[in-house]
Design a protein around this nucleic acid. Structure first.
Lengths: 152, 152
DNA sequence: TTCAGATAGATGCAATTGCATCTATATAGA
DNA sequence: TCTATATAGATGCAATTGCATCTATCTGAA
Protein backbone atom coordinates (compact mmCIF):
# COMPACT_ATOMS: atom_id res chain seq x y z
CA UNK A 1 0.00 0.00 0.00
CA UNK A 2 1.34 3.37 -1.03
CA UNK A 3 1.35 6.09 1.59
CA UNK A 4 2.02 9.52 0.25
CA UNK A 5 4.14 11.72 2.45
CA UNK A 6 3.16 14.97 0.73
CA UNK A 7 -0.43 16.07 0.65
CA UNK A 8 -2.07 17.16 -2.60
CA UNK A 9 -2.93 20.82 -3.11
CA UNK A 10 -6.60 19.91 -2.72
CA UNK A 11 -5.90 18.23 0.61
CA UNK A 12 -3.91 21.21 1.83
CA UNK A 13 -6.64 23.60 0.85
CA UNK A 14 -9.36 21.57 2.52
CA UNK A 15 -7.20 21.28 5.63
CA UNK A 16 -6.44 24.98 5.76
CA UNK A 17 -10.10 25.87 5.41
CA UNK A 18 -11.07 23.40 8.08
CA UNK A 19 -8.55 24.83 10.53
CA UNK A 20 -9.41 28.41 9.84
CA UNK A 21 -13.16 28.06 9.79
CA UNK A 22 -13.39 25.94 12.89
CA UNK A 23 -11.16 28.35 14.81
CA UNK A 24 -13.18 31.33 13.65
CA UNK A 25 -16.53 29.76 14.46
CA UNK A 26 -15.48 28.54 17.89
CA UNK A 27 -14.24 31.99 18.71
CA UNK A 28 -17.50 33.59 17.66
CA UNK A 29 -19.50 31.20 19.79
CA UNK A 30 -17.22 31.71 22.78
CA UNK A 31 -17.61 35.45 22.37
CA UNK A 32 -21.38 35.15 22.19
CA UNK A 33 -21.43 33.08 25.37
CA UNK A 34 -19.18 35.56 27.15
CA UNK A 35 -21.38 38.43 26.05
CA UNK A 36 -24.29 36.59 27.59
CA UNK A 37 -22.41 36.13 30.86
CA UNK A 38 -22.43 32.36 30.28
CA UNK A 39 -19.75 29.71 30.81
CA UNK A 40 -17.46 28.49 28.03
CA UNK A 41 -18.36 25.96 25.35
CA UNK A 42 -16.65 23.07 27.12
CA UNK A 43 -19.19 23.31 29.92
CA UNK A 44 -21.96 22.97 27.40
CA UNK A 45 -20.45 19.87 25.89
CA UNK A 46 -20.37 18.13 29.24
CA UNK A 47 -23.78 19.32 30.36
CA UNK A 48 -25.22 18.25 27.02
CA UNK A 49 -23.84 14.72 27.28
CA UNK A 50 -25.08 14.43 30.84
CA UNK A 51 -28.52 15.73 29.94
CA UNK A 52 -28.76 13.18 27.12
CA UNK A 53 -27.68 10.44 29.49
CA UNK A 54 -30.57 11.16 31.83
CA UNK A 55 -30.93 10.02 35.41
CA UNK A 56 -28.48 7.18 35.01
CA UNK A 57 -25.68 9.68 34.52
CA UNK A 58 -22.31 8.92 32.99
CA UNK A 59 -18.95 7.81 34.26
CA UNK A 60 -16.12 10.31 33.72
CA UNK A 61 -14.41 7.94 31.29
CA UNK A 62 -17.57 7.91 29.19
CA UNK A 63 -17.51 11.69 29.08
CA UNK A 64 -13.92 11.51 27.92
CA UNK A 65 -14.88 9.21 25.04
CA UNK A 66 -17.77 11.40 24.03
CA UNK A 67 -16.19 14.83 24.32
CA UNK A 68 -12.60 13.94 23.33
CA UNK A 69 -11.31 16.08 26.20
CA UNK A 70 -8.20 14.93 28.01
CA UNK A 71 -8.66 12.95 31.21
CA UNK A 72 -7.18 15.61 33.46
CA UNK A 73 -9.30 18.29 31.84
CA UNK A 74 -12.47 16.35 32.48
CA UNK A 75 -11.42 15.71 36.04
CA UNK A 76 -10.95 19.40 36.67
CA UNK A 77 -13.92 20.55 34.64
CA UNK A 78 -16.13 18.25 36.69
CA UNK A 79 -14.67 19.73 39.85
CA UNK A 80 -15.64 23.20 38.64
CA UNK A 81 -19.10 22.08 37.59
CA UNK A 82 -19.61 20.41 40.94
CA UNK A 83 -18.53 23.51 42.83
CA UNK A 84 -21.22 25.39 40.90
CA UNK A 85 -23.75 22.65 41.73
CA UNK A 86 -24.34 21.94 38.05
CA UNK A 87 -23.51 18.26 38.46
CA UNK A 88 -23.27 15.81 41.30
CA UNK A 89 -20.84 12.95 41.81
CA UNK A 90 -22.30 9.68 43.01
CA UNK A 91 -20.12 6.79 44.16
CA UNK A 92 -20.78 3.74 42.03
CA UNK A 93 -21.67 0.48 43.74
CA UNK A 94 -19.80 -2.12 41.76
CA UNK A 95 -16.55 -0.21 41.15
CA UNK A 96 -14.93 1.42 44.13
CA UNK A 97 -12.60 3.46 41.91
CA UNK A 98 -15.33 5.18 40.05
CA UNK A 99 -18.22 7.55 40.29
CA UNK A 100 -21.24 8.44 38.28
CA UNK A 101 -21.83 11.99 37.23
CA UNK A 102 -25.37 13.27 37.11
CA UNK A 103 -26.61 16.65 35.96
CA UNK A 104 -28.60 18.66 38.49
CA UNK A 105 -31.64 20.82 37.96
CA UNK A 106 -29.42 23.87 38.04
CA UNK A 107 -27.20 22.17 35.48
CA UNK A 108 -30.13 21.62 33.15
CA UNK A 109 -31.14 25.21 33.58
CA UNK A 110 -27.66 26.45 32.77
CA UNK A 111 -27.52 24.19 29.73
CA UNK A 112 -30.86 25.57 28.56
CA UNK A 113 -29.69 29.15 28.92
CA UNK A 114 -26.48 28.36 27.10
CA UNK A 115 -28.41 26.75 24.28
CA UNK A 116 -30.41 29.88 23.58
CA UNK A 117 -27.12 31.59 22.76
CA UNK A 118 -25.25 28.62 21.31
CA UNK A 119 -28.16 27.49 19.15
CA UNK A 120 -28.67 30.96 17.81
CA UNK A 121 -25.00 31.13 16.90
CA UNK A 122 -25.20 27.84 15.03
CA UNK A 123 -28.28 29.03 13.20
CA UNK A 124 -26.59 32.25 12.15
CA UNK A 125 -23.09 31.00 11.47
CA UNK A 126 -23.95 27.73 9.80
CA UNK A 127 -27.68 27.31 9.22
CA UNK A 128 -28.12 30.64 7.50
CA UNK A 129 -25.12 30.20 5.23
CA UNK A 130 -25.86 26.93 3.50
CA UNK A 131 -29.12 25.30 2.40
CA UNK A 132 -30.10 22.02 4.05
CA UNK A 133 -28.85 19.91 1.20
CA UNK A 134 -25.40 21.40 1.35
CA UNK A 135 -25.30 21.16 5.12
CA UNK A 136 -25.94 17.46 4.73
CA UNK A 137 -23.23 17.17 2.14
CA UNK A 138 -20.81 18.96 4.45
CA UNK A 139 -21.72 16.70 7.35
CA UNK A 140 -21.22 13.65 5.17
CA UNK A 141 -17.82 14.78 3.94
CA UNK A 142 -16.68 15.61 7.45
CA UNK A 143 -17.99 12.27 8.62
CA UNK A 144 -15.55 10.57 6.31
CA UNK A 145 -12.65 12.41 7.97
CA UNK A 146 -13.73 11.09 11.32
CA UNK A 147 -11.89 8.27 13.02
CA UNK A 148 -13.41 5.86 12.49
CA UNK A 149 -15.18 7.26 9.41
CA UNK A 150 -18.94 7.64 9.55
CA UNK A 151 -20.79 5.23 7.32
CA UNK A 152 -23.79 6.84 5.67
CA UNK B 1 -35.42 39.98 7.59
CA UNK B 2 -36.12 36.82 9.47
CA UNK B 3 -33.40 35.52 11.78
CA UNK B 4 -34.03 32.08 13.13
CA UNK B 5 -33.00 31.54 16.72
CA UNK B 6 -33.03 27.75 16.54
CA UNK B 7 -30.78 25.91 14.15
CA UNK B 8 -32.14 23.20 11.87
CA UNK B 9 -31.21 19.58 12.53
CA UNK B 10 -29.00 19.69 9.44
CA UNK B 11 -27.15 22.74 10.78
CA UNK B 12 -26.67 21.11 14.15
CA UNK B 13 -25.31 17.97 12.60
CA UNK B 14 -22.89 19.82 10.34
CA UNK B 15 -21.77 21.91 13.31
CA UNK B 16 -21.26 18.90 15.55
CA UNK B 17 -19.23 17.13 12.89
CA UNK B 18 -17.13 20.21 12.30
CA UNK B 19 -16.34 20.59 15.99
CA UNK B 20 -15.57 16.96 16.52
CA UNK B 21 -13.53 16.38 13.40
CA UNK B 22 -11.45 19.50 13.72
CA UNK B 23 -10.67 18.71 17.36
CA UNK B 24 -9.73 15.17 16.52
CA UNK B 25 -7.53 16.11 13.60
CA UNK B 26 -5.71 18.88 15.45
CA UNK B 27 -5.00 16.50 18.27
CA UNK B 28 -3.57 13.88 15.92
CA UNK B 29 -1.31 16.42 14.28
CA UNK B 30 -0.14 17.78 17.63
CA UNK B 31 0.63 14.25 18.74
CA UNK B 32 2.58 13.55 15.57
CA UNK B 33 4.63 16.72 16.08
CA UNK B 34 5.32 15.82 19.71
CA UNK B 35 6.37 12.33 18.71
CA UNK B 36 8.83 13.92 16.32
CA UNK B 37 10.20 16.17 19.07
CA UNK B 38 8.89 19.19 17.21
CA UNK B 39 7.17 22.38 18.41
CA UNK B 40 3.39 22.79 18.43
CA UNK B 41 1.22 23.64 15.45
CA UNK B 42 0.95 27.31 16.36
CA UNK B 43 4.67 27.72 15.73
CA UNK B 44 4.21 26.30 12.26
CA UNK B 45 1.43 28.73 11.47
CA UNK B 46 3.61 31.69 12.30
CA UNK B 47 6.74 30.36 10.62
CA UNK B 48 4.69 29.54 7.54
CA UNK B 49 3.30 33.04 7.24
CA UNK B 50 6.73 34.53 7.74
CA UNK B 51 8.30 32.23 5.18
CA UNK B 52 5.64 33.20 2.65
CA UNK B 53 6.23 36.84 3.39
CA UNK B 54 9.92 36.55 2.47
CA UNK B 55 12.64 39.00 3.33
CA UNK B 56 10.26 41.86 3.88
CA UNK B 57 8.85 40.11 6.90
CA UNK B 58 5.55 40.91 8.54
CA UNK B 59 4.36 43.18 11.30
CA UNK B 60 2.88 41.42 14.33
CA UNK B 61 -0.54 42.85 13.58
CA UNK B 62 -0.39 41.24 10.14
CA UNK B 63 0.37 37.91 11.76
CA UNK B 64 -2.65 38.41 13.98
CA UNK B 65 -4.88 38.97 10.95
CA UNK B 66 -3.52 35.93 9.15
CA UNK B 67 -3.43 33.43 11.98
CA UNK B 68 -6.45 34.63 13.96
CA UNK B 69 -4.45 34.28 17.17
CA UNK B 70 -5.09 36.76 19.96
CA UNK B 71 -2.76 39.74 20.19
CA UNK B 72 -1.23 38.70 23.49
CA UNK B 73 -0.68 35.19 22.23
CA UNK B 74 1.19 36.44 19.20
CA UNK B 75 3.24 38.75 21.36
CA UNK B 76 4.32 35.88 23.56
CA UNK B 77 4.71 33.35 20.81
CA UNK B 78 7.05 35.73 19.02
CA UNK B 79 9.05 36.11 22.22
CA UNK B 80 9.47 32.33 22.38
CA UNK B 81 10.35 32.08 18.73
CA UNK B 82 12.89 34.84 19.13
CA UNK B 83 14.47 33.19 22.13
CA UNK B 84 14.94 30.10 19.94
CA UNK B 85 16.41 32.28 17.17
CA UNK B 86 13.69 31.20 14.74
CA UNK B 87 12.69 34.77 14.02
CA UNK B 88 14.20 38.19 14.44
CA UNK B 89 12.58 41.46 15.36
CA UNK B 90 13.58 44.51 13.39
CA UNK B 91 12.55 48.03 14.37
CA UNK B 92 10.55 49.64 11.61
CA UNK B 93 11.62 53.01 10.29
CA UNK B 94 8.40 54.87 9.75
CA UNK B 95 6.53 53.67 12.84
CA UNK B 96 8.29 53.90 16.15
CA UNK B 97 5.71 51.72 17.86
CA UNK B 98 6.21 48.77 15.63
CA UNK B 99 8.60 46.14 14.47
CA UNK B 100 8.97 43.82 11.56
CA UNK B 101 9.31 40.12 12.13
CA UNK B 102 11.55 38.13 9.84
CA UNK B 103 12.12 34.40 9.79
CA UNK B 104 15.73 33.28 10.21
CA UNK B 105 17.58 30.45 8.51
CA UNK B 106 17.06 28.34 11.56
CA UNK B 107 13.39 29.25 11.46
CA UNK B 108 13.10 28.08 7.86
CA UNK B 109 14.86 24.86 8.78
CA UNK B 110 12.49 24.25 11.68
CA UNK B 111 9.52 24.94 9.48
CA UNK B 112 10.83 22.47 6.91
CA UNK B 113 11.26 19.75 9.51
CA UNK B 114 7.80 20.42 10.89
CA UNK B 115 6.34 20.19 7.42
CA UNK B 116 7.65 16.69 6.85
CA UNK B 117 5.51 15.59 9.80
CA UNK B 118 2.62 18.00 9.35
CA UNK B 119 2.35 17.41 5.61
CA UNK B 120 2.38 13.67 6.08
CA UNK B 121 -0.41 13.99 8.63
CA UNK B 122 -2.52 16.03 6.24
CA UNK B 123 -1.91 13.50 3.50
CA UNK B 124 -2.96 10.62 5.73
CA UNK B 125 -5.78 12.23 7.64
CA UNK B 126 -7.35 14.19 4.82
CA UNK B 127 -5.77 13.45 1.45
CA UNK B 128 -6.09 9.69 1.75
CA UNK B 129 -9.70 9.80 2.90
CA UNK B 130 -11.38 11.75 0.15
CA UNK B 131 -10.75 11.96 -3.60
CA UNK B 132 -9.65 15.30 -5.03
CA UNK B 133 -13.09 16.22 -6.24
CA UNK B 134 -14.62 15.78 -2.83
CA UNK B 135 -11.77 17.63 -1.16
CA UNK B 136 -12.57 20.54 -3.40
CA UNK B 137 -16.21 20.31 -2.57
CA UNK B 138 -15.38 20.29 1.13
CA UNK B 139 -13.11 23.30 0.77
CA UNK B 140 -15.82 25.15 -1.15
CA UNK B 141 -18.48 24.41 1.46
CA UNK B 142 -16.19 25.46 4.28
CA UNK B 143 -15.29 28.58 2.36
CA UNK B 144 -18.91 29.63 2.54
CA UNK B 145 -18.84 29.42 6.31
CA UNK B 146 -15.91 31.76 6.42
CA UNK B 147 -16.26 35.38 7.42
CA UNK B 148 -16.37 36.90 4.97
CA UNK B 149 -17.45 33.96 2.79
CA UNK B 150 -15.10 32.83 0.06
CA UNK B 151 -16.33 33.58 -3.43
CA UNK B 152 -15.53 30.80 -5.86
C1' DT C 1 0.95 73.36 17.77
C1' DT C 2 -1.71 70.70 20.97
C1' DC C 3 -4.32 67.44 22.79
C1' DA C 4 -7.76 63.67 22.60
C1' DG C 5 -8.23 59.49 20.78
C1' DA C 6 -6.48 55.50 18.18
C1' DT C 7 -3.08 51.94 17.23
C1' DA C 8 1.10 48.74 18.16
C1' DG C 9 2.79 45.83 21.15
C1' DA C 10 4.07 44.15 26.02
C1' DT C 11 2.99 42.43 30.57
C1' DG C 12 1.11 41.39 35.66
C1' DC C 13 -1.84 38.29 37.42
C1' DA C 14 -5.39 34.71 37.58
C1' DA C 15 -7.31 30.67 35.33
C1' DT C 16 -6.62 26.79 32.47
C1' DT C 17 -3.93 23.23 30.18
C1' DG C 18 -0.35 19.74 29.69
C1' DC C 19 2.68 16.49 31.60
C1' DA C 20 3.95 13.30 34.70
C1' DT C 21 2.83 10.89 38.37
C1' DC C 22 0.09 9.33 42.28
C1' DT C 23 -3.54 6.73 44.91
C1' DA C 24 -6.96 3.40 44.99
C1' DT C 25 -9.45 -0.32 43.26
C1' DA C 26 -10.07 -4.09 39.99
C1' DT C 27 -8.67 -8.11 37.34
C1' DA C 28 -6.15 -11.96 35.52
C1' DG C 29 -2.80 -15.38 35.92
C1' DA C 30 0.52 -18.27 38.67
C1' DT D 1 -4.50 -16.41 47.62
C1' DC D 2 -0.98 -13.56 45.94
C1' DT D 3 1.08 -10.69 42.83
C1' DA D 4 1.62 -8.11 38.57
C1' DT D 5 -0.73 -5.35 35.65
C1' DA D 6 -4.53 -2.54 34.14
C1' DT D 7 -8.03 0.93 34.89
C1' DA D 8 -10.44 5.11 37.18
C1' DG D 9 -9.68 9.34 38.59
C1' DA D 10 -6.96 13.16 41.09
C1' DT D 11 -3.13 16.31 41.53
C1' DG D 12 1.71 18.94 41.90
C1' DC D 13 4.06 21.70 39.05
C1' DA D 14 5.38 24.09 34.80
C1' DA D 15 3.78 26.26 30.59
C1' DT D 16 0.25 28.60 28.19
C1' DT D 17 -3.93 31.38 27.78
C1' DG D 18 -7.14 35.04 28.93
C1' DC D 19 -8.13 39.37 30.80
C1' DA D 20 -7.16 43.80 31.84
C1' DT D 21 -4.19 47.25 31.56
C1' DC D 22 0.10 49.65 30.50
C1' DT D 23 3.58 52.24 27.70
C1' DA D 24 4.84 54.33 23.59
C1' DT D 25 3.94 56.27 19.34
C1' DC D 26 0.96 58.03 15.86
C1' DT D 27 -3.03 60.72 13.76
C1' DG D 28 -6.48 64.01 13.17
C1' DA D 29 -9.21 67.82 14.48
C1' DA D 30 -9.40 72.32 16.82
Amino acid sequence: MIEKASPSPAAIKAWARLMRVSRQLVEKVEDALKDGGLPPLAWYDVLHELAEAGEGGLRPFQLIERTLFAQYNVSRLLARLESESLIEKIPVADDGRGQTIRITGKGRETRRRMWTVYGRSIAELVGARLPAEELEMLAALLGRLRHPPAME
